[in-house]
């Protein structure tokens, strides 16, 4: 009854991004880019209704590079070509125990537009040996970027949570996750053929310096 189907037209994103790279040397006015439907190991066979286990998953991360604004092939997992990796609700950084790079991240609270400078400190890398903080971007409901509602099984990105990223190339980016569902359409009733594990996020990448606007 209260379904709200949200359809976003985001085709201009990548074009805008490459356009601004050319103007880089002059006073750079960075544009926020929205990336739609990054698949984060979606279950091709849905979910097992009795134990909730995902069916038909690869258990592989989908890698993303802010510098290129595109997905990096999984075969490049052992390179520094990627910055973040997505699998389900878990996001890894290319650094620490997760990858060979020196990428780092932290989750901050604020309005995306108003966070105009990358923080000096507070970045962390993944550390699978740490029991309390194995990921720079914390997992678990309410801890990092999302809330999980056990009654409806829905994942919602927490409003006001922004992920600050130090990329593999040593540059800065900020990103805000907008949706965890394909085409940003959140299901209103639980379904066995879900459309979850598709990230839509917007980001600003600064190829030189710490200004994020």
């Amino acid at each position: 009854m209260k379904n709200r189907f949200i359809i976003l037209s985001l085709s201009a994103g990548v074009i805008l991004f490459s356009a601004c790279q050319k103007n880089d040397s002059v006073a750079p006015a960075l544009n926020a880019v929205t990336y739609t439907n990054l698949p984060a190991d979606p279950p091709s066979g849905g979910y097992n209704p009795t134990n909730g286990q995902a069916i038909g998953v690869t258990n592989k991360f989908t890698f993303f590079s802010f510098a290129t604004g595109a997905i990096v092939a999984n075969t490049d997992s052992a390179t520094t070509k990627w910055d973040l990796g997505f699998r389900g609700t878990t996001i890894i950084v290319n650094g620490g125990t997760s990858g060979p790079g020196n990428a780092a991240a932290q989750v901050v609270t604020g309005i995306f537009e108003n966070l105009t400078t990358a923080p000096n400190s507070g970045f962390g890398q993944d550390n699978s040996r740490s029991a309390s903080a194995p990921y720079a971007i914390p997992t678990g409901s309410g801890n990092g970027w999302y809330n999980y509602d056990p009654a409806s099984n829905l994942i919602t990105p927490i409003a006001g949570r922004v992920i600050m990223v130090k990329t593999s190339g040593g540059e800065y980016a900020k990103m805000e996750i907008l949706s965890y569902y394909k085409n940003t359409v959140m299901p209103t009733t639980p379904t066995l053929t879900p459309n979850d594990r598709y990230y839509t996020f917007r980001y600003v990448y600064q190829p030189s310096g710490t200004k994020l606007q």
Binding site: R4, G142, S152, N153, T156, I158, A159, G160, T189
Partner: peptide, 21 residues
């Protein structure tokens, strides 16, 4: 609320629709 109206496995969308809980 998030647990309201969960009738025989048919759960309902909670009122919060703008991700702040």
């Amino acid at each position: 609320g998030s647990l309201q109206g969960n009738v025989q496995g048919i759960s309902i969308p909670p009122s919060d629709r703008n991700n702040n809980g």
